[in-house]
């Protein structure tokens, strides 16, 4: 397995998709730098940080929302876009193995599809987490620089912690996307479904946020099975109601469930 992980990292290093992803992150960083104050998919009482969710960039009033909160929230705000880069990297990388027939060749020469899949997923998890972390930290430093805010070590560490948690949720979603890709065998269908559903979830969460307790079981359930629920809370630093544990449990369950489903499909299905 270690050998195959090394191979997958080598493939990522020489893949055009990786460089497209880097350009995507740079482009986002440019937008982040150039844009002013932005609310994205927000809901709740916006003047009270603990009562609002969503993605806030550069929102501070100096009274209810201090500059510190604004800088920290801003660092995570662009996860609303950056998850798409991770999704594209993951789906492109996996689908190219089928499209180029390299997965078939791997099996022809005595490899197991599930070994390649696990190693590739591991490599993508490493690369995506590193890229997400660097991106979040760059956003943090840019925002702090723009607002002349002196960052403390604990604030940087808190940002790293939340960025990692956001990445864990993202990785579970990526694992789910690989499961869908293995099941449907169509990159276009999977990308379309997976690009739209989380955004629909965010809109649903935003519109029902104020009266979510009164919406019964279904709406919160639908909202909570989508990653944007966790990102909307974590990015707005609304770290209440056990959201960290919720995010971890959600990620572990989704990751393991999707991974098991994928391995079963790979073991029992013939290659196209």
């Amino acid at each position: 397995m270690g050998k195959q992980i090394k191979v997958e990292l080598y493939k990522l290093l020489h893949s055009r998709t990786t460089y497209v992803s880097l350009i995507g992150y740079l482009f986002l960083l440019l937008i982040f730098f150039a844009s002013g104050s932005v609310f994205m998919m927000v809901a709740g009482n916006l003047s009270v940080p603990s009562e609002s969710i969503g993605f806030f960039k550069g929102i501070a009033d100096g009274i209810n929302i201090p500059i510190q909160i604004s800088v920290l929230r801003s660092a995570h705000s662009f996860i609303i876009f950056s998850w798409l880069i991770g999704l594209n990297l993951c789906i492109s990388t996996f689908s190219s193995e089928t499209k180029n027939r390299t997965l078939s060749l791997y099996i022809c020469e005595g490899g197991k599809a599930e070994t390649l899949y696990i190693a590739k997923m591991f490599a993508i998890c490493i690369v995506t987490t590193i890229l997400q972390l660097i991106f979040t930290l760059l956003c943090l430093f840019l925002m702090a620089g723009q607002l002349n805010y002196p960052l403390t070590t604990s604030e940087v560490l808190q940002t790293v912690g939340i960025a990692l948690l956001n990445s864990v949720v993202l990785l579970a979603f990526l694992e789910f996307s690989v499961f869908m890709l293995t099941l449907l065998r169509s990159r276009i269908a999977v990308e379309l479904i997976l690009c739209l559903i989380p955004l629909i979830g965010a809109i649903l969460y935003g519109t029902s946020f104020a009266e979510i307790q009164a919406t019964g079981v279904q709406t919160p359930l639908v909202i909570k099975i989508l990653p944007t629920y966790y990102w909307a809370n974590l990015a707005s630093l609304r770290l209440i109601d056990g959201i960290i544990w919720e995010a971890l449990i959600y990620s572990i369950l989704l990751f393991c469930g999707a991974a098991m489903g994928t391995v079963i499909l790979l073991k029992h299905r013939e290659m196209k």
Binding site: R101, L105, C108
Partner: peptide
Amino acid sequence: MGCLVESPALY
């Protein structure tokens, strides 16, 4: 074994 099945499988 060494294989070349259907079309060339390349990166």
